[in-house]
C-alpha cells in the first residue's frame, strides 16, 4: 500500500511509496501513528526514496509525527530526499529541527 515498515533495534523505518499530498496524508497518518504507538521506537526514520513529489500537506504530516516522537522521547530523521522535496522542507523550516539526509547517489 502507501507505506512499508521495517522494525529493528527499536528503530522504525517508514518507507512512503507514493507522492505525498493531502489525499495520501489523510490515508497514512493514522497508520503511521499506530505503528509508532505500538512499537515505541527510539527513532523514526522516514525513507523518502520513492517520494517524487510532496506539497504542504507533507509538511503538516512530518511536523505531526515529529511532535509524536518528541512526546515519547524519541528522535526523527528523513532520508533519501529528492531535490524538489528538499526545497519544500527547507521552505517550511523543518530542516532546522529534523535531521535530513539527501538521496544517495545510485
Amino acid at each position: 500500500m502507501n507505506t512499508n515498515y521495517i522494525k529493528k533495534d527499536k528503530l522504525l523505518t517508514v518507507e512512503i511509496t507514493e507522492e505525498i499530498d493531502h489525499h495520501i496524508v489523510e490515508k497514512i497518518r493514522r497508520k503511521v501513528d499506530d505503528e509508532i504507538t505500538r512499537y515505541m521506537p527510539r527513532k523514526a526514520i522516514f525513507d523518502f526514496s520513492r517520494v517524487s513529489f510532496m506539497d504542504s500537506a507533507g509538511i503538516g504530516m512530518i511536523i505531526g509525527r515529529y511532535k509524536m516522537m518528541k512526546l515519547i522521547g524519541g528522535e526523527m530523521e528523513i532520508i533519501n530526499i529528492n531535490p524538489n522535496v528538499k526545497r519544500i522542507l527547507e521552505m517550511s523550516g523543518i530542516s532546522k529541527i529534523i535531521t535530513m539526509k539527501e538521496k544517495r547517489a545510485s
Binding site: 496524508v25 497518518r29 506539497d55 509538511i59 503538516g60 504530516m61 511536523i63
Partner: peptide
C-alpha cells in the same frame, strides 16, 4: 486540527 501547515499560499507565491 487537520495538521495543515499554513504554507499553501507561501508555496504558490514562491
Amino acid at each position: 486540527n487537520l495538521e495543515r501547515s499554513g504554507m499553501g499560499f507561501t508555496i504558490m507565491e514562491s
